[in-house]
């Protein structure tokens, strides 16, 4: 599955970079996020996330890495994990463009391979579930960064 999008937020590029490459803040905006099981290093962490497609729910423990970092412009996040009867293998590329000192555009692409019950029980629902998840993630990012920008802090 391939997804891509472009979002513009009212925050400086360094703040957006700091937010999107921090495990806790990214996970805080991820729908279904439960806990970070372990932070193994600055760019390696293991979140626990519940994904639901239609009637099917699966709780994944993901192994995530942030790689190819070119601060504050580019990064790739990879994640792999399995749940009961399902597995996911995903990577997402981020590109940040500074539109003005207080405005940043996020260009992102994501490729995910979903296996098992989540897809075969709800094949027709995966795309809409992914769209819903993405929308709610960026709504959260915008809200946090805008609020952070207003308050002068990002966290």
């Amino acid at each position: 599955m391939h997804f891509e999008g472009r979002e513009t937020v009212n925050a400086p590029i360094d703040a957006v970079w700091a937010f999107l490459t921090d495990a806790q803040s990214v996970m805080g905006c991820t729908p279904g996020f439960r806990e970070v099981e372990a932070i193994i290093g600055p760019d390696h962490f293991r979140p626990v996330v519940t994904a639901s497609v239609g009637l099917v729910k699966a709780t994944f423990t993901l192994d995530c890495h942030i790689v190819n970092k070119q601060p504050p412009h580019k990064a790739r996040i990879t994640g792999r994990g399995s749940a009961v009867g399902s597995a996911v293998d995903a990577q997402s590329d981020l590109e940040l463009i500074s539109e003005s000192p207080g405005k940043t555009t996020i260009i992102w692409t994501a490729d995910a391979t979903l296996s098992g019950a989540l897809t075969n029980m709800g094949a027709r629902l995966v795309d809409s579930a992914a769209e819903k998840t993405t929308n709610s993630f960026f709504a959260c990012v915008r809200e946090k960064l805008d609020a952070g920008a207003r308050a002068g802090v990002v966290r």
């Binding site: 239609g54 391979t113 979903l114 296996s115 098992g116 897809t119 075969n120 029980m121 709800g122 094949a123 027709r124």
Partner: peptide
């Protein structure tokens, strides 16, 4: 099956 080998039609929903 999709390209990853996921079953399409693995429940009575499909």
């Amino acid at each position: 099956y999709d390209e990853d080998g996921n079953i399409r039609g693995g429940s009575f929903m499909d």
